[in-house]
Simulated scan of single mutants.
Amino acid sequence: MKIASLTVFCVCFSFFCYSQESNSSVLKVNLSALTLGAYSLQYEKALGNRISFALGVAYRPVKIVPFAKTVESFVDAADKRIDYISLVNVKKSESTAGNFGLTPELRFYLGKNKSAPIGTYIAVFGRYNSYFGKAPVFVDMLYKETFARIELPVDTQVKTYSGGLMIGKQFRLGNRFTFDWFIIGGHYGRVTVHGESKQNLEGYDEQFIKDLKEKIIDTFKINEQYLSLEVDKQGVRLDNARNLSFFNLRGLGFNIGYRF
């Protein structure tokens, strides 16, 4: 038992010394994320001359969506390509959003005379993201021959699970610092959607509830093959009716790292 314990200690001590001598670990902060009001850190550990493992953690507190006008233009353009819901009647400039994400990845470093974690690499990664916030929406309808605008502040949660590839390059900045450039990549996966607007509709009759549901489906062009909508006297709820897939790009990330 003592010999086994001593052996484990020697192996761990040797590994620790190797880490100290070779600066095989890097702790990085994503500068690009900071411009969006988010905080993103990544820890990378070299597992050999050509391979490393990295784990990224990202967090953005719930607040107004940054660059609202730009985001609104982007969403309006993307709206034409989404075939299961329309976001036209969402007040995008008043919407709030937060995010928590995890990105584990395995990196393969390329080129001659290069060793992890410095050089050009191809990353195989998985990604989990949870987006949460509030989206003010509205529908216009007739109620008892009177025009009414129904405001529905919707608490939203969107979760994505994906995997993909990315190419990047990490530069040495002196003995202790690095600059890691996420050049370009893509990932494909599935998404789950949940939206809920708690409302007290007890004062309205069943016909109004039915008309409101039909109006929401018509206004937001909800495809009920993909999304399930429920409207009752407690409010409105929207969930997946089936798995939804998505593709997204990953890149243009600029990270400053400290080697140790």
Rank of each mutant, 00 (worst) to 15 (best):
N223K: 02
F125K: 08
K69N: 15
K221L: 15
F125T: 09
K2G: 15
M166P: 00
H187M: 07
Q199A: 08
L165C: 01
K134C: 03
Q157R: 14
V231A: 01
Y128L: 07
F246E: 01
A241R: 01
A123Y: 07
T160N: 05
V75E: 05
H187F: 05
D79V: 06
G133I: 00
A33D: 12
Q234H: 13
A54W: 03
K114M: 09
L55D: 10
D205K: 09
F9I: 11
Q157A: 09
D205L: 08
K69L: 13
S32T: 07
V57R: 06
Y161K: 09
R190V: 13
Y39K: 11
L238K: 05
L47W: 06
K114P: 15
P66T: 03
N255Q: 11
K63F: 10
D140Y: 14
T120I: 09
Q170K: 11
D232Q: 00
Y109Q: 03
A97Y: 10
F100T: 12
D180S: 03
S73G: 12
K112D: 10
F247H: 09
N129Q: 04
F171S: 00
S86P: 03
A46G: 00
L249S: 14
E105R: 04
E206C: 04
G253E: 06
L229T: 00
L6K: 15
R50W: 06
Q199L: 15
N23V: 09
C17D: 09
G98Y: 05
A116W: 12
L238C: 01
G253S: 02
Q20C: 12
K28F: 10
S130H: 09
P117W: 04
G257S: 03
F53Q: 05
G195E: 04
N49T: 06
S86C: 02
I3A: 15
P117K: 01
R50S: 15
R81K: 10
F246H: 08
I51P: 06
Y131C: 05
L55A: 07
L34K: 04
K2A: 15
R127W: 03
D239C: 13
V75K: 02
P104K: 06
V124R: 00
S86N: 01
I167Q: 07
I217S: 05
P61W: 01
D205T: 00
Y258E: 05
S86V: 02
V231I: 11
D83I: 11
N99S: 14
V236S: 02
G186P: 05
M166Y: 06
L55P: 11
S197P: 09
V193M: 11
T70R: 10
N49R: 08
F108I: 13
Q42L: 07
K2S: 15
F74I: 15
K91S: 14
D79S: 02
R250L: 15
L142T: 13
E44S: 05
M166H: 03
S228Y: 04
L102F: 04
L6F: 15
G101K: 00
D76C: 09
A33C: 03
G111C: 00
V11E: 07
